[in-house]
Design a protein around this nucleic acid. Structure first.
Lengths: 157, 157
DNA sequence: TTGAACTGTTTACCATAATAACAAACTTGC
DNA sequence: GCAAGTTTGTTATTATGGTAAACAGTTCAA
């Protein structure tokens, strides 16, 4: 144990490092964990997080346009095309013509889409329940509230 | 205002949606905001977040190997090669031979690397200070603590 | 001493996203 | 009414960040 290079297989302890005290770094690490578990929970052929979030909004706010959806998700509308394509291919929504404006196509969930969403949101809730089971209800609520507060403060881009 | 499709340019209000109550979704949105501001704070030719985090650990834990560093950052060691290459090209660290094991190359920060890191960490602290200025000191500490607690619980992958 | 394991590395690949350009459709100012 | 500007959905291109598989050289353990 003298003068040897540390060659442990376990992750070395970084406690007290600058990194560990940065919110940004911890946010990223936490996000990676949650995202990986989300995917695992929805299975190999499950919806990717971004596709899920689009479906969620289409189910809860039917007849929104792609542009409006992109603004809600805060992504470019060009990026939404592939997401909507996938949801349409899965039969979860339809692009429907809007009388009065031939540019836009309102996004309408199908019955299958609403049913699939009900199943999926249940799995997602179970995933968060399991993943955060080591934290108390009030700790989870605090975390959620703090994240929302931060987004409210900085989100008016 | 009757029967018309919502065509506002501003981001529609998603308050009360399922998405807004998911920790994972809020985590991601917060992460995207912080990461974008991080990059903006370090400028066009500044270090990317992952390169910064590698430099941080090399400065604070000199003579670690690439494998150990990859475990600390929880990324694949193949992915670390390009990061270490960049830091070496910038003259911030050196790969040095380790007597007794010709496989490993200990990562040692240069004097320039330590000075650069001091500058950069100051900018990073200023960035977080500015970004979270809408939250009280104790709110920020709570957020940090909750994120660390979550990582501690789930991090033993 | 032979087989297993570890290190750094390259190559290939995948996922997520932004940017730029475009045609079609709509709106506005005159 | 009409020209100029704007919005919508779309494609193509590019950047980024990461994993997986394979490999040669080296070390370790039975």
């Amino acid at each position: 144990m003298a003068g040897r290079i540390d060659r442990n297989r376990a992750a070395p302890d970084m406690r007290g490092s600058d990194l560990e005290e940065l919110i940004g770094y911890n946010l990223k690490r936490a996000y990676v964990i949650v995202q990986a578990d989300f995917r695992a929970s929805l299975g190999k052929d499950g919806l990717a997080p971004r596709v899920f979030s689009a479906l969620s909004l289409v189910v809860q706010f039917p007849h929104t346009t792609q542009s409006a959806l992109a603004r809600m998700l805060d992504i470019e509308r060009s990026g939404l095309v592939a997401i909507v394509d996938e949801l349409e291919e899965r039969g979860y929504l339809a692009r429907t013509a809007v009388p009065g404006d031939r540019r836009v196509q309102a996004l309408v969930p199908t019955t299958a889409g609403r049913h699939a969403y009900a199943d999926i949101i249940a799995k997602v809730h179970a995933h968060e329940e399991r993943l955060f089971s080591g934290m108390t209800r009030s700790e989870r609520q605090s975390l959620l509230d703090l994240l929302k507060k931060f987004r409210d403060l900085e989100g008016q881009s």
